[in-house]
């Protein structure tokens, strides 16, 4: 269940963000607030600045103007990184011959935290995370031998093994077939509702909006819509994006 905004904590705040690359504006005056319990889809065509926005929120890029607060702090001062999970767009573009088992992939994040973790605690955390994403039977399989959908579930396990409060995903279903996409989104929906995990998903696939999301933001250099799922459906935001000739994946439901 999503908490009412008035009672829920604000996890992320973005104000007046400007970012340009090579003199070309990528983001212009973007302001956004993400509340605990949100399942927010940031929709936009390719090249609309979605990935850049995520990277600025996470502190991987610095904005030209404006500011970000991650759990109330600027990203550069935010050290409780275990509260944040991130699955980048290129997560599945790793070297397919990389010699890492599924277990090692999940453990690498657990062991990279600020606190030391004992081997039994690590085993338990890895097992619970892999069970949550229904991948426990593959724990000893080399990551490169899994399908795209299975790899994405392992990366979610890697992120949730550290018990984050918010999970960022950048185009997570690229290269995942339609049936596994549904399964993947169902998993995210479950984590959001039962696991009380705030989810921010960046995509150009509008199909996700009808199914699982409770908030929507539309971005194309500027943020031209940010509201609830119902507000999005009754607004002209989707039509506006389509009318703009932007490349979006549309689904009929």
């Amino acid at each position: 269940m999503v908490l009412p905004d008035a009672e829920a904590a604000e996890l992320i705040r973005v104000e007046g963000l400007h970012f340009s690359r090579g003199g070309r504006p990528v983001l212009t005056d973007v302001s956004l607030s993400i509340i605990e319990g949100d399942f927010l889809a940031i929709l936009g065509p390719n090249g609309s600045g979605k990935t850049t926005l995520l990277k600025i929120i996470l502190g991987l890029l610095k904005p030209d103007q404006g500011w970000v607060r991650l759990f109330g702090r600027p990203p550069e001062d935010f050290v409780e990184r275990e509260l944040v999970g991130y699955i980048p767009q290129k997560a599945t573009h790793f070297d397919p011959l990389f010699p890492a088992s599924v277990r090692e992939v999940v453990a690498m994040a657990l062991r990279s935290g600020r606190r030391r973790i004992s081997r039994p605690d690590e085993d338990t955390a890895v097992r619970i995370a892999l069970e949550t994403v229904d991948m426990i039977e593959f724990w000893n399989r080399r990551i490169g031998r899994l399908s795209g959908g299975q790899q994405q579930r392992v990366f979610i396990a890697r992120a949730i093994a550290r018990n984050p409060r918010i999970l960022f995903l950048d185009e997570p279903t690229t290269g995942v077939d339609a049936e596994n996409q549904d399964r993947f989104y169902d998993l995210l929906g479950r984590l959001n509702t039962s696991g009380r995990l705030t989810i921010v998903l960046v995509t150009h696939d509008t199909g996700i909006v009808n199914k699982h999301v409770n908030k929507v933001a539309c971005l194309n250099q500027r943020l031209f819509f940010h509201g609830t799922h119902d507000q999005f459906c009754s607004s002209g935001a989707l039509k506006e994006m389509i009318a703009g000739g932007h490349h979006l994946v549309l689904h009929r439901h």
Binding site: R81, P88, F98, A109, F155
Partner: peptide
Amino acid sequence: FYHRFMFMTFDREAAQAAGV
């Protein structure tokens, strides 16, 4: 630094976001 080296070698951006 074994796990941190492995994490950043495998997925540099995710490792950086995780505080490596």
